[in-house]
Amino acid sequence: MSLSIQNLTANIGDLPILKGITLEVPKGEVHAIMGKNGSGKSTLAKIMAGHPDYTVTGGDVLMDGRSLFEIAGPDERARAGLFLAFQYPMEIPGVTIANFIRAAIQSRLAEGEELEATDYYANLYAKMDALKIPRAFTSRSVNEGFSGGEKKRCEILQMAMLEPKYAVLDETDSGLDIDALKIVSEGVNALRSPDRGFLVITHYQRLLDYIVPDRVHVMVDGRIAMSGDKNLALELEARGYDWVTETAAEPALA
């Protein structure tokens, strides 16, 4: 059981962005992808989620053995158990968080089955308390006028409510101060489970002090240039991305 990315290539228009990505996140593990801006990290996340702007040109992504690309729309992939925490969550004016999450859960129920309101709110409030989100939040419109920290906490709240099999966190640490970073990380850690895999995309090593990964992959120019354990993140922090580029280039020269 895993989220298995196999030699994935993809374009935006005619421009290749992913040039053959292979990595596997077994259920129960947390993997991190690090890389410079423009290395293709966010593209990878969006392609898995089914964003219409990208064209997959080769390879596959298997979620517990089933090809994501055989699951038609982004909504079906989501209902099949894939969650993406957005780097820039969208605003939905006039739609409250409570109603939005409720609609998302409702979409997973069989036709004719109704979500029980009292159970739903009990569950929602419990998870909000855990993420230190005030109750008044439920009646605010999704992401409208939210601070960076509020948006990211709201993403984690949605993840907690939707209980995905695999979650991809795209630069969840961007725009967070240290307190917000701690709260969000605690939220993610609380959701770590043998039944769930995480792919954490980040620019900085800092996040990985709080969400300690099982594996770290470094992405350079649309490829995984290097993989290692959590210490790779520290080494990368000390030596910089150029070190990876040089090191990764060596075998090619040899």
Binding site: A49, H51, G73, P74, D75, R79, P89, F100, A103, S107
Partner: peptide, 16 residues
């Protein structure tokens, strides 16, 4: 796309 990623189909997303 954001709403679809949460599981709503296109019609439900527009409706919301």
């Amino acid at each position: 796309f954001y709403m679809q990623q949460r599981g709503l189909n296109q019609g439900q997303a527009m409706s919301l």
